[in-house]
């Protein structure tokens, strides 16, 4: 009798899990590790994701209503800013770094090239208040949102309370960004047994595992650690990366390893967008490494690739482009009324 009772509890728990998962805006891809983001403090809800999505595309976030998150994080560029080496914001200001692509954020523990931000919820505060990005403040934004009839009903639908607050705005933006999961590239399909690599891609995968995988680790294609990848310092920027946050000499010239997913959509490359194409990037790793005390241990020995190997490696890297993600309508601009 006792055993039977326990069994029925187990069945009930499993059923409820399946039901919740079906309508959930976030599903962990089977071949991904567990996410780092703690969803218990911000459980995803379709109405909140919707509010976050509308906020993400709304220039109301900037002081003069000209710049939205999407201005520098365009969906068609995997939420990066193609063609601009350095990001540009309010009043045509030019920043110091290349706008990074936004996807698979649930697996990242720190944000920005130097890890200045320690939690996804707090990330939006930085661009909102940066003088060269949106030039506003969270306080000013809250005032504007509370003056808007449209947002009153959006906040009510999402949070069952029409008043906008800092926490609600930040958590809504997090919720939308957490749904930006890229896991349907050719690579993923091969891993899941739905596709096969060509011989050239196979060769490239082999080279990738030999030379790149320690930092750009599968399946996220980044360790999200901070590394110095041997770039010469740009004298016009004097950017020492992680050092500017920790003031620890061991962090000098280290930047967060970016994911290689969607790389065809996210050019130019590196923290300052100095390389226009993948050929330049590979040339840096084979011929351009500058030795310094903080150089990544994985780059101390030279990487040698002949021209054919470079072509093969690029063929594999192109398998990391996730077209379904790039053109997914549910990530794109949506009018607040629709």
């Amino acid at each position: 009798m006792r055993n039977k009772f326990m069994f029925s509890i187990v069945v009930f728990a499993m059923l409820s899990f399946i039901i919740i998962n079906k309508n959930h805006p976030f599903t962990k891809p089977a071949h991904f590790p567990p996410p780092s983001y703690d969803f218990r403090n911000n459980p995803l809800d379709t109405a909140i994701v919707n509010l976050g999505r509308i906020l993400f595309y709304d220039p109301i976030l900037s002081a003069d209503n000209t710049i939205s998150c999407a201005s520098c994080h365009s969906p068609y560029n995997a939420f990066a800013h193609t063609d601009h080496d350095l990001s540009h914001g309010i009043s045509d200001s030019i920043g110091n770094r290349n706008a990074p692509a936004l996807f698979n954020l649930a697996w990242q523990k720190s944000f920005m090239w130097d890890g200045a931000i320690n939690h996804l919820d707090m990330q939006a505060l930085a661009p909102i208040s940066h003088a060269k990005e949106m030039g506003s403040s969270i306080e000013e934004l809250i005032k504007k949102l509370n003056d808007s009839k449209t947002y009153k009903s959006l906040f009510y639908n999402a949070w069952k309370d029409s008043i906008a607050t800092g926490v609600k705005v930040l958590k809504s933006l997090s919720q939308f960004q957490l749904t930006l999961v890229s896991s349907n590239a050719k690579y993923d399909k091969v891993i899941n047994g739905q596709d096969t690599f060509t011989q050239q891609e196979k060769n490239g995968y082999h080279l990738f595992k030999k030379h790149c995988n320690i930092c750009h680790s599968e399946p996220l294609f980044s360790s999200y650690a901070f590394e110095n990848n041997g770039l010469p310092v740009d004298p016009t920027l004097q950017d020492f990366g992680r050092w500017s946050i920790t003031h620890n000499a061991q962090d000098s010239l280290k930047f967060k390893v970016p994911s290689l997913r969607n790389l065809s959509y996210t050019y130019p490359y590196m923290h300052d967008g100095r390389f226009k194409n993948l050929k330049e990037v590979l040339h840096h790793y084979t011929n351009g490494i500058v030795k310094s005390p903080t150089l990544s241990a994985n780059l101390v020995n030279p990487i040698i690739l002949n021209p054919n190997e470079k072509v093969d490696l690029i063929a594999f890297l192109l398998c990391l482009n996730d077209k379904e993600f790039i053109f997914d309508k549910k990530h794109q601009y949506k009018k607040s009324g629709s």
């Binding site: 200045a116 931000i117 320690n118 939690h119 707090m122 505060l125 930085a126 909102i128 208040s129 940066h130 403040s137 969270i138 306080e139 809250i142 607050t165 800092g166 926490v167 930040l170 946050i245």
Partner: peptide
Amino acid sequence: DPTNGMYWTWQS
């Protein structure tokens, strides 16, 4: 709440 003026925006 980060709107209380007691939270750094540029570095968490």
